[in-house]
Amino acid sequence: MRKLDKILEGLKYRKPDFKGREKLIDSIMDATADKEFTGSWQIYRWTDITWLRRSLSIASVIIVILFAGQQFIVLKRVNQLESRIMNVSTDEILEQQRKNVIANSLVIEDNELSLNDDSIYVAKEDLMKFARDYRELRKKYEDLIRSGNSGSRVQKKKSPDVNDEQKL
C-alpha cells in the first residue's frame, strides 16, 4: 500500500470528535428563533419567490427601454417643432416685408412724389398719413372743380334764357 493511501485511511478512520454538539444545536435553535421574529426577514421574504424576482427584473428592463424610447420620441418631436416654428416665423417675416414693400410702392405711386431713397427719411406712418391727407385734399379739389364746372355750365345755359327774356 502506498504512503498516501495509508495516510488517507488513517485520517478517515479517525473521525473528528464533536465536542459541544448539544450546545451547538441549542445555539442554532436560538439563532433560528431570533431570525423568526426579525422584521427584516418578513420584509424581504418576497425575494425568495423566484418568479416574482424574475418578473421584477424583466419589468425593470422593459421600463428602462420604454423610458429610452420615450426620450427619443420627445427629442425628435421637439426638433420638428423647432424647425416648424423657424419656418413659420420666416414665412411671416417675408410676408410682412412683402406687404411693406407693396404699401411703400403704392404710397410712392399714389403720391407721385418719386422720392429717392437717399434723399429723405420719413416715417412710414407719417408718409401714409400724408398720402391719405393728400388723397383727401385732391378728391376735394376734384369735387370742387367738378362742381365749379357744372355751375358755369348752368350759368351758360341760363344766360341765353335771360337774353331770351330780354328779347321778349
Binding site: 439563532a31 421574504r45 425568495d48 423566484t50
Partner: peptide, 22 residues
C-alpha cells in the same frame, strides 16, 4: 479548525432556515 467548523455549521443552518420556503 474546530471552532471555525462550528461557526460554519451554525451559519449554514441559519441560512437554510431563512431559505426554508424554497
Amino acid at each position: 479548525n474546530t471552532e471555525d467548523a462550528k461557526d460554519i455549521v451554525q451559519e449554514t443552518f441559519v441560512k437554510v432556515w431563512e431559505k426554508r420556503s424554497i
